[in-house]
Design a protein around this nucleic acid. Structure first.
Length: 563
RNA sequence: GUCCCGGUAGCUCAGUAGGAUAGAGCAACAGCCUUCUAAGCUGUGGGUCGCAGGUUCGAAUCCUGCUCGGGACACCA
């Protein structure tokens, strides 16, 4: 923030080169407690250099530093604490936000660069699990954040539409399948077939080899196998698109694994030319000893290609097609090794863009402390959870605001907002225990809390006569508006942080903080009071709505004006 | 066995370039709606930051060892 610059310049003036302005800037921090001021300069480093007591130095600096942007500068033990001029800063911040509106916090450092984000990527013929939800909402949010930073974003849904599971499914279908049942509820039926297959396969091992047989047929282009595959895929996509519509997620490409089938030989051939491929135990592999990694398998001893081959092919295809600056994979953290191998193979092959690949892992959703397993049918269906959330949101509306218009529309925004926010508020990499109660909570640090804060603020704006105009903003000096102002001022930095760490949770946490600050303000200050600061207070409220709405948008959540 | 994550309040988690007195939400208890939406606000209780060393003026944060939990480790994706 620019006030850090001002502070470091003011301090640098007094130090006569003992520390550079850059150094000072990097030392400056935000005090832990409000009463300690807005910016602090700890004097420990200086004490060492000057061989004097830090307390003494702080005292001297505090007496000498003067800058019109500060109300006062005081020494507090070994710290020099600066108190910003509230009137001036608040006027600046509010004017900026209202002028820039939804562009506030936007950057253009990503201009003219493409980012490919691979996310969601559900498996065909399997239900859309909570795990896929994580990939979907994280990826979707990262796409919006990257766009906010100026990048051109390509959102890729790398569908799991190929692999031996289709062999299993075909076998199961032929043995126990019922067309009518599948038509009626495809995902559920296909899942049951899949689960049944694994149950039966434990007793009758020949099922496994039958499945491999059918998958080979599929790869060879067998008519019957292909038709079944098309059918399963079509039904699955119908189901998925329902969910994407609810979550308001869109993709630029649905090129899944099957798309790369014809390019696989070419990939292996290229790697051969680079001299990377060796044969081991009948399989074609790339040795990665120098990276301290196990070898990467490209082709099984029976001639079939593997997951790694497909991902290598996809990476090459994407680089050729999009010339990406970054290629991000939002995939569960259990696949870290796979992506390390992927990157290492490309590095070894001297593909200069290998370093542009980034695996953005996330922890999984646990059930009773363990990973959920599709094979055993131990999954919680996302669609069910979404329905529950919307229904509960509706009940809340009937209960608290039954005169509301568009109840169903708002219930949808709130219910889904709760689910998405719940998923994004925690650090990506931590595993989370599945808890329906937590997901459907609308109080405390939740999406609906932020939405509610936004709706209250909007409600005030509807009641005020003040025009959306910056000329009357004089600035605010009270204690309750100050945390709100400082919070609003931080928004642009939060976006950069969220982008650099690939962490939407940074934004989610920020929105909770801002909402809390604003709710305190709301509870303690009469906003619609006709005095000379009315326009400034309204500007504050308006700025809060702008930031909350934009922040929620970056998470993929809608902000109703009324709830 | 090797490698990668993680262990902070009863529960879920913040604390990301080492800094002042350890922070929220939930749950529990006690308050606040004739005034801008109570999905809110205010207060109370609750902690050997997994354990032990080390580096430092200063460690929840960095290093080492141990321990517990999860994950990955060649023909699945």
């Amino acid at each position: 923030m620019k006030y850090v610059n001002d502070f470091s310049v003011a301090i640098a003036e007094q130090l006569e080169g003992v520390l550079s302005e850059e150094d000072i800037k990097s030392i400056i921090e935000v005090p832990k407690f409000d009463q300690q001021g807005d910016l602090a300069f700890p004097c420990f480093v200086l004490a060492k250099k000057l061989k004097r007591s830090p307390v003494e130095i702080a005292q001297q600096l505090a007496d000498q530093v003067h800058y019109p942007g500060f109300e006062k500068v005081v020494a507090d033990g070994p710290y020099v604490n600066g108190f910003l001029n509230k009137q001036m800063v608040s006027r600046d911040v509010l004017t900026t936000v209202m002028t820039q509106d939804e562009e506030y916090g936007s950057y253009d450092f990503g201009k003219d660069h493409n980012i490919v984000i691979d996310f969601s990527s559900p498996n065909i013929a399997k239900p859309f699990s909570m795990g896929h939800l994580r990939s979907t909402v994280i990826g979707n949010s990262l796409a919006k954040i990257a766009d906010k930073c100026g990048y051109s974003v390509v959102k890729v849904n790398h569908l799991g539409d190929w692999g031996t599971q289709f062999g299993k499914l075909i076998v199961a279908y032929k043995l126990w399948g019922d067309d009518d049942k599948i038509q009626a509820d495809p995902i559920k039926e296909l899942l049951e077939l899949y689960v049944k297959f694994h149950e039966e396969a434990e007793k009758y091992h020949e099922l496994e080899s039958k499945a491999r047989e059918w998958f080979s047929k599929l790869e060879a282009g067998d008519k019957e196998a292909l038709n079944l595959w098309e059918w399963f895929k079509g039904e699955s996509l119908k189901e998925f698109s329902k969910i994407y519509q609810l979550l308001n997620v869109e993709f630029d490409s649905y090129q899944g694994e099957a798309f790369y089938n014809d390019l696989m030989d070419e990939t292996i051939e290229k790697l051969h030319q680079n001299g990377l491929v060796t044969t081991s135990e009948g399989a074609e592999v790339v040795n990665l000893d120098e990276y301290q990694l196990p070898p990467c398998l490209l082709r099984k001893s029976d001639g079939a290609t593997l997951y790694a081959t497909r991902d290598l092919t996809a990476a090459m295809y994407r680089y050729k097609t999009y010339q990406f600056e970054k290629s991000i994979y939002v995939v569960g953290h259990e696949q870290s090794l796979h992506f390390n191998q992927l990157k290492s193979v490309l590095e070894k092959g001297e593909y200069s863009w290998a370093e542009k690949l980034t695996h953005v892992p996330f922890g999984f959703i646990l059930k009773d402390g363990k990973k959920m397993s599709t094979r055993k049918g131990k999954v919680v269906l996302l669609e069910q959870v979404i329905e529950d959330a919307i229904r509960m949101a509706k009940e809340n509306i009937e209960d608290k605001n039954s005169n509301l218009q568009d109840k169903d529309e708002v219930a949808k925004m709130v219910g889904i907002g709760a689910i998405i926010f719940h998923d994004l508020k925690n650090e990506r990499t931590s595993n989370v225990e599945f808890s329906l109660d937590d997901m459907l909570r609308f109080e405390g640090s939740t999406g609906p809390y932020v939405q509610y804060t936004h709706a209250r603020a909007k409600s005030i704006l509807r009641k005020s006569e003040v025009k959306s105009d910056t000329s009357g903003i004089e600035g605010l000096t009270d204690d309750y508006s100050w945390p709100v102002i400082k919070s609003i001022e931080k928004f642009p930095q939060i976006i950069v942080k969220a982008f650099e760490y690939y962490e939407p949770s940074q934004i989610a946490k920020y929105l909770i903080d801002l909402s809390r600050d604003f709710n305190k303000y709301y509870a303690n200050v009469k906003i619609l009071n006709d005095d000379e600061q009315l326009e400034s207070r309204i500007a504050l409220v308006r700025s809060v709505t702008i930031v909350l709405k934009e922040g929620l948008r970056l998470l993929g959540i809608k902000a109703p004006d009324n709830m």
